[in-house]
């Protein structure tokens, strides 16, 4: 997901630095407030750990392998703001010293992997885990689902950044100047890869580490309780909402109504087929709110309403999932305690 230099126009790169800047600013302020004098060693050592985590080559069932980002995991252990800072540091070091990801595209890469990923992942983890015990299965599920959806959200945003390049930056005769593929190729290409490989890797790594932390080092997990008590969670919620609002209209963009100089038909002509995910995606988004514009209102208002409805639906489903898991746990617990008294 590391975008190298040359894929994004300088304008996009600049814009992404500007978009990331407020997150960096708040992250530095918040982390310094919580960790005080410990900030430097704590962030440095954790960032070094994240760097190592990203280097691990993880085998997936079926033979493929991949690398995880670990963004949701950091957010769970250190809190979302520390995650923003710590992953940005790792991305900067990767870009400068190992040529992994570009220098001009660093702002974009940080937004995708250090902001969207941990904030969405952590938000989902929080919603699913609710007030459950640190060692509960519900939390484990929250970590797994959160990390999976977090990386998918990041890949959507990455696809969006790449996909708008040919639309906005091309020569008079239509030659794309930067990343050559439109939204209808870039988004499915990014998301399908992440749904199938990078997402599962992220979920497996996060799940395993979370599981072993629960078993032997649950103190590292319960630290977030102190962050919660600060009452600053609303900010995370707000951040997640912004990000989801950002991600939701991608369905609209992916369907060839608004954008898409290369419509599905042209793509079909060129490739001989249309990536399945693309049609699936556009159908999915078309389903509840046709064309994303509520009748009688402007496109912008329609889009905002659609985004909010989307967020509400996702939030509700996650809440239901969390409830369901905790109910199952309680039943299990009751059963085992009944079994104990009977024996």
């Amino acid at each position: 997901m590391h975008i190298p230099d040359g894929y994004l126009s300088p304008a996009t790169c600049g814009a992404m630095y500007v978009v990331s800047a407020p997150f960096w600013y708040v992250a530095v302020q918040r982390v310094r407030k919580v960790l005080t004098h410990r900030t430097v060693p704590a962030m440095a050592l954790f960032s070094a750990f994240i760097f190592i985590l990203m280097m691990f080559n993880v085998p997936l069932p079926g033979g493929t392998t991949g690398h995880a980002v670990g963004g949701t995991l950091v957010a769970i252990v250190l809190g979302p703001w520390a995650a923003v800072l710590s992953i940005s540091v790792v991305l900067a070091i990767q870009a400068v010293l190992f040529g992994d990801g570009g220098l001009t595209s660093l702002g974009a890469n940080c937004f995708n992997m250090a902001v969207v990923l941990p904030v969405v992942g952590y938000f989902i983890y929080r919603v699913i885990s609710g007030n459950s015990d640190v060692n509960s299965t519900r939390r484990l599920v929250g970590a797994i689902v959160g990390s999976y959806l977090g990386i998918i959200a990041a890949s959507l945003v990455t696809g969006l950044e790449l996909g708008i390049q040919p639309l906005l930056f091309h020569t008079a005769d239509g030659t794309p100047l930067y990343a050559p593929y439109g939204l209808n190729v870039a988004i499915p290409a990014m998301t399908i890869g992440h749904l199938v490989i990078a997402g599962p890797v992220e979920a497996i790594v996060t799940g395993l580490v979370f599981f072993y932390l629960q078993k032997s080092h649950s103190a590292l997990l319960s630290r977030e309780a102190s962050q919660k008590s600060e009452g600053k969670l609303w900010f995370v919620w707000a951040g997640a909402l912004v990000v989801l609002a950002f991600a939701t209209p991608l369905g609209l963009l992916a369907s060839d109504t608004a954008w898409g100089e290369w419509g599905a038909v042209e793509l079909k002509k060129a490739l001989g087929y249309i990536p399945q995910g693309m049609t699936a995606l556009s159908n999915l988004w078309h389903a509840p709110l046709p064309d994303y514009s509520v009748q009688g209102m402007g496109d912008v208002v329609g889009y905002i309403i659609s985004a909010l409805v989307g967020i509400a639906v996702i939030g509700f489903l996650l809440w239901l999932l969390g409830r369901w898991i905790s109910r199952k746990n309680e039943i299990k617990k009751n059963r085992s305690s009944m079994g104990g008294s009977a024996g």
Binding site: W24, V28, T39, V40, P41, M43, A44, L45, S47, A48, F51, L85, V89, V90, A92, I93
Partner: peptide, 8 residues
């Protein structure tokens, strides 16, 4: 940030 980068 520079200090964190250095130590990382």
């Amino acid at each position: 940030v520079v200090d964190i980068l250095g130590m990382t």
